[in-house]
Amino acid sequence: MTQPFELNTTISNLRDLHASDLSLYDAIYLGNITCRLYEANLLEHLGDLRDAIATVKAHGLKAYVTSYAAPRNDFLPKLAKAMAVAVEAGADAVEVHNLGVLKIVHEAHPGLPIHVGGFANVYTDAGAEVLKQFGAVRITPNYELSLEEIGQIHRQVGLPMELLVHGKMPLGISDHCFLLEYEEAWGMKCPDLCQQDLFLKQGDWAMKSVGKGVLSGKDVCMLEHLPRLVGEGNTRFRIETVSESPEYRLEVGRVYREALERAFAGTDGVEERWWTTLRRHARIGLCNGFYFGRSGMEYLGVRPDAVASALRRPVAETTDYQAQGAIR
């Protein structure tokens, strides 16, 4: 019997792949989208990429190869080679965040399934329709979209939407890594810098830094909303673990595997032990992203304690930047 849903995640390098228990997942995105210098980034180490694809497929999972979020010109030749390796090694799809790369991949490998990533800025059905003509078979809509908007795109375009259901949500991508400024002070060098536990804090809220990438400080958590997601026809779900430990990947994956199976069986209920696990792994707290048309760091649901923050103050007491004149 075909499983009604897919749960996937992201792994940047071979070391992390071998250290991770993949059994909770149906598919793995391989590679790091933020930086060419990320430790042993599979997109730059093509022998490793072949091994990684083989490893994932040997586990009976689908292997997807991702690509850079904001590539400059000099990225393109190597990226084209990585995509060719993906095809040769039997990857099931590639993920693109950059529309120039979409064009390159579609022209070089016309039959290759392409997943459009969250940095591709798909905000509308019209945008999705255009990308469908370039070979897109699945779309992660921009993270700013609400479930209502995502549903509209799905209905209009007919492509499956991939939803981030848990983990730190990408908020931006830079062309620079400011962490390089700290090599001397911290006594460590690239590529170790961005693998530290780094947060940018401003008063009562925070974002996670991964060098060129900025992620939400809070973990997006849709655990108690899975029945709605399922009811609205969503079947592709992602746990973003690119900056997380193998333990996070395993334990959070286990929670969502159980919860999704329950949701697809039409059984209600969220286990307390699931919350315990998710809270333990969420350093800054939990949020719902933009799925309910609110700011990305808010949490709506029956578990108000889910927003408990390492920064000590609940969302309701957040700093009023407008009153302070910070909003122009």
Binding site: A70, I173, W205, M207, F290, S295, G296, I327
Partner: peptide, 18 residues
């Protein structure tokens, strides 16, 4: 700016007012 133009939703993570 630090984030590439067109690839940033940090502000709306903090606040989003329809």
């Amino acid at each position: 700016e630090f984030i590439v133009l067109g690839k940033c939703w940090m502000p709306s993570y903090y606040r989003l007012n329809p």
